[in-house]
């Protein structure tokens, strides 16, 4: 047999000259000889979702200052693939609720949340989004964000440090990647049309001020936690 050719493996034969070394990467090394991986599509999607999250640029109160610091230099949430604040809810996956929610703002926040495309995730930042925090007893304060929208991760603190928020977001990513946090469709608190409310004393009193078709939010402070 006269051949200069060295014996090559099937794989080498198949790959020809080999791919440009510029495409070599850690990932490729990890995959070994085979450039293919087998995974479930769901799992892959979850991994993708968790690794690239667009945050909604949404500031309410004190916590939003710390949230800004989390996005900006030093803490740089972008390192974790979650640091592109989007001004429009239609471009965002995650809403961080950074502050106290009061009666006038709750329906607006609900509206912003509803405008986000599914799947969407909510990080409640600070004690106010848990229970109303230091303002729990206020006549005007919603006792936690969960009265209005479903919350995936609560980050306690008043305000939480940027590190705590980073940890919260990382935990959310972990949960998403593991498929533990399914796309949320539960909406515990709906805006109702005024005409659909029970015709109690208050509703009768307001009847001539509010159009039947107007969306309203009804607060029952006595029964809120």
């Amino acid at each position: 047999m006269s051949s200069d050719k060295q014996i090559q493996s099937t794989q080498e034969a198949r790959m020809g000259e080999g791919v440009d070394s510029r495409f070599n990467s850690k990932l490729r090394e990890a995959f070994g000889s085979s450039p293919f991986i087998l995974t479930k599509f769901d799992k892959f999607m979850n991994w993708v979702r968790g690794s690239s999250m667009f945050m909604l640029q949404f500031g309410i109160a004190c916590c939003s200052i710390e949230m800004m610091h989390t996005y900006a230099v030093k803490h740089d949430l972008d390192r974790f693939g979650a640091g592109v604040p989007r001004a429009s809810p239609r471009q965002a996956d995650v809403i961080i609720v950074p502050g106290t929610i009061v009666s006038k703002f709750a329906p607006r926040m609900k509206r912003v949340y509803d405008q986000m495309p599914e799947p969407k995730f909510v990080v409640g930042m600070g004690s106010c989004t848990i229970s109303g925090g230091p303002f729990h007893e206020g006549y005007n304060v919603i006792k936690g964000a969960e009265e209005v929208i479903p919350v995936d991760i609560h980050v306690p603190g008043c305000p939480p440090r940027p590190e705590a928020l980073v940890y919260g977001v990382a935990k959310l990513q972990e949960r998403i990647a593991n498929g533990e946090s399914s796309p949320v469709t539960v909406k515990p608190y709906e805006l109702e049309q005024f005409g659909d409310l029970e015709g109690d004393e208050l509703v009768r009193h307001l009847a001539d001020q509010i159009d039947e078709e107007d969306l309203v939010m009804r607060y029952n402070w006595a029964e809120s936690p």
């Binding site: 009666s103 607006r108 208050l202 107007d214 969306l215 607060y219 402070w221």
Partner: peptide
């Protein structure tokens, strides 16, 4: 004499 417990309705107009 404000009653903190009383329910409130808040509108959200289009």
């Amino acid at each position: 004499d404000y009653d903190k417990e009383q329910p409130q309705v808040v509108t959200f107009r289009e």
